[in-house]
């Protein structure tokens, strides 16, 4: 068959997917995804509060973005509506912009004090 690769991909995706897209996902399955998303969010939040390395703190914000994206995609699948997936594109955009700015700031701060510790900057209290 000339479409062997396409068939392979199709089989793989149909074993991965819950069902074909028009079949609705059940509420208990949605609850599983929301729970996992909440766990990822809390891990990211705890990491942001406890870690003292500036780079790891920003990695933890990315973890929270991930959790939000997972919840959006799960709801998109639950409601059979694509707007949830579209919003993940905007989440990715904001994450990229945030990473660029945050990392530029980290490089700047590292040049000033030669350390990545967030507590070096505790005199900045606005």
């Amino acid at each position: 068959m000339t479409f062997g690769m396409a068939n392979l991909v199709h089989t793989a995706s149909s074993t991965l997917a819950q069902a074909g897209f028009p079949e609705p996902m059940s509420t208990p399955a949605l609850a599983h995804y929301l729970f996992l998303s909440a766990v990822l969010f809390v891990i990211g939040m705890v990491g942001f509060v406890t870690r003292r390395n500036l780079i790891i703190m920003f990695l933890c914000t990315e973890l929270m973005f991930q959790a939000a994206g997972l919840a959006l995609i799960a709801f998109s699948r639950f409601h059979l509506h694509h707007t949830g997936q579209t919003f993940v594109i905007f989440v990715l955009t904001i994450a990229a912009a945030e990473a660029a700015l945050a990392l530029a700031l980290v490089v700047l701060l590292f040049r000033k004090k030669d350390s990545l510790s967030g507590e070096e900057w505790r005199e900045m209290q606005g």
Partner: peptide
């Protein structure tokens, strides 16, 4: 791993966009 979850949720485009962008 979350790309795998996206694939289960039939969001193929976002799964691969996530690998590329993130």
């Amino acid at each position: 791993a979350s790309c795998g979850l996206y694939l289960i949720l039939s969001a193929e485009f976002m799964a691969f966009a996530l690998v590329i962008v993130y």
